[in-house]
C-alpha cells in the first residue's frame, strides 16, 4: 500500500490541527479536527480496499455524510457572525439531502454519488461567496491576513469551486498524465493541497488570535 499525496496532505493537516486548534474553546475547531481525522481514516481504508481489488466507493458515500455535515456546520459557524443563517442553511442542507435521497433511489450504494457531490459543491461555493459578501458589507473591517475563519472559508471555496468542472465531467475523460494518475486525480491532489494548506494557515491564525486574546 503506497502513501498517496492526498494522505500526506491530510496527515500534515491533522497534525497541525491537533497541535494548534484542538484545545480551542469553540467546538468548530474540534469538529474540523475530527473531520480531518475521519477523512484520513477513510482515505487509508479506501486505499487498503483498493490494494485488495475491492470496491471502495461505498466508503466514500458514507464519508459524504461527514463531509456534508462538517462543511455545512463550518460555514454556518462563519456566517452566523453576521446574520442568522438558519433559514438559508435549512434550504441548502435540504437540497443536498434531497440529492442524496435521489441518488439512493436511482443508483446502487456502491456507485459514485456524483449528483450529491456536484450539488454540494455548488451550494458550498454559493455559501462561501455569500460569506464574502457579508464580510464586505459589514461596517467593521477585519484584518483578513490574520482572520482564521476567512482562510478556512477560502480553502472551502477553492476546493469546491475548483472541483465543479471535474465533478460535472466525471467519467467522460480518463486521460492519464503521470503514470497511473488520471487528470481527475491530479486535479483532486492539487485541490486537496490548496484546501489543506489554507486550513493549516487558518489554524495558525486561530492559534495567534487565541494567544492574543488570552
Amino acid at each position: 500500500m503506497r502513501l498517496s499525496p492526498i494522505v500526506i496532505a491530510e496527515t500534515v493537516c491533522l497534525i497541525s490541527a491537533v497541535a494548534l486548534v484542538w484545545k480551542d474553546k469553540y467546538a468548530f475547531w474540534k469538529v474540523v479536527t475530527c473531520y480531518i481525522a475521519i477523512a484520513l481514516l477513510t482515505e487509508q481504508y479506501a486505499a487498503y480496499l483498493s490494494s485488495r481489488h475491492q470496491h471502495n466507493l461505498w466508503l466514500f458515500n458514507i464519508f459524504l455524510f461527514f463531509e456534508i455535515s462538517t462543511i455545512l456546520f463550518g460555514l454556518y459557524h462563519c456566517i452566523k457572525a453576521y446574520i442568522n443563517p438558519k433559514p438559508i442553511f435549512a434550504i441548502g442542507g435540504g437540497i443536498i439531502c434531497l440529492s442524496y435521497v435521489i441518488f439512493l433511489f436511482k443508483q446502487p450504494f456502491s456507485e459514485s454519488n456524483n449528483l450529491t457531490i456536484s450539488v454540494m459543491s455548488v451550494v458550498y461555493a454559493l455559501y462561501c461567496l455569500y460569506y464574502y459578501y457579508l464580510l464586505l458589507k459589514d461596517e467593521n473591517f477585519i484584518e483578513i491576513k490574520n482572520h482564521p475563519e476567512f482562510w478556512w472559508v477560502t480553502g472551502v471555496l477553492f476546493y469546491y469551486f475548483g472541483s465543479t468542472m471535474a465533478n460535472i465531467f466525471d467519467g467522460l475523460f480518463n486521460v492519464k498524465i503521470i503514470g497511473y494518475a488520471t487528470l481527475r486525480y491530479c486535479i483532486y491532489v492539487l485541490l486537496n493541497y490548496i484546501l489543506y494548506s489554507l486550513w493549516i494557515y487558518s489554524f495558525i491564525c486561530r492559534m495567534k488570535q487565541r494567544k492574543l486574546q488570552s
Binding site: 477553492f158 469551486f161 475548483g162 472541483s163 465543479t164 468542472m165 471535474a166 465531467f169 467522460l172 475523460f173 486521460v175 487528470l183 481527475r184 486535479i187 490548496i194
Partner: peptide, 14 residues
Amino acid sequence: KIAILVAISTLIFL
C-alpha cells in the same frame, strides 16, 4: 478534448 476543456476550466475556476 474533454480532458483539456476540464483542465482549462478548472484552472479558470481556480
